[in-house]
Amino acid sequence: MINGLTLGAIYGLIAIGYTMVYGIIGMINFAHGEVYMIGAFISVITFTILGPFGFASPVLAIVVVLMVALVFTSVYGWTVERIAYRPLRGSFRLAPLISAIGVSIFLQNYVHMLQGAKMKPVQPVVRGGFVLAEEGGFVVQITYLQIGIIAATLVLMAGFTLLIHRTSLGRSQRACEQDRKMAALLGVNVDRTISLTFVMGAALAAVAGLIFTLYYGAVDFFIGFLAGLKAFTAAVLGGIGSLPGAMLGGVLIGLIEAFWSAHFPIAYKDVAVFGILVIVLIFRPTGLLGRPDIEKV
């Protein structure tokens, strides 16, 4: 259960990146999973560099790593948009998708080339936890790390919702989502808004990457693909374009996975996830929290 929530938090944070980009320019940012992977790598590298300095408190170390990962990963998100997507805006629907697949292949192998193929294990940074219940030698415990992750995700979500609803950036974003041409006519800097959307998506992916690093303690260049796929599934499940939907979808998928792993053959957990996605889409084609769209004729 708690495992599921943690996993769900990771998926949800990545899913927001997909949902925002899809909402604003209607494209599946296939490379987003790789951006998350890069976020995780930058976290590992920063932890390793900081290692010898021996920070007094792990919290401080995490904050420093978070800042570093946020900044650098965002630059990656920004660059990808600038180079590979912006020139294709306005061309036909599949062009940016193929470009995105190209970027995804590039980033994956770029990291592979630079950092090698092996798993990179990290020393656990946060240890310990509470024992919630003990029943016949069966211990249910929640670690500080899990609490921290869930709390951090909640805070991020709240902050994010505020950002979208209260600030001018959020307003521009929502305007671009509705009608990009009109927004541009009304003086919204569309290019900048889209760039910032990618930056925010990348920043959240970086947080997810850091969480993954802390929680699983090992990173390799291939983690982006499956996580990206599941996060996108989460975004679709929750209703693409909807931020709470993305989070809900992420949590649901995390829970499904945890539940399945506990009761059924673990190898098929991904099959279960996609199976549920298909079922949801058949009965609710716009996802759980998606706006039902009336076909305009």
Partner: peptide, 21 residues
């Protein structure tokens, strides 16, 4: 072989930028 897939991904992006259709 090390750079093969990196170049492959890059080529995909470049061709798309050059001729989106």
């Amino acid at each position: 072989s090390q750079y093969r897939m990196v170049l492959f991904g890059m080529a995909m992006v470049l061709i798309m930028l050059w001729r989106p259709q």
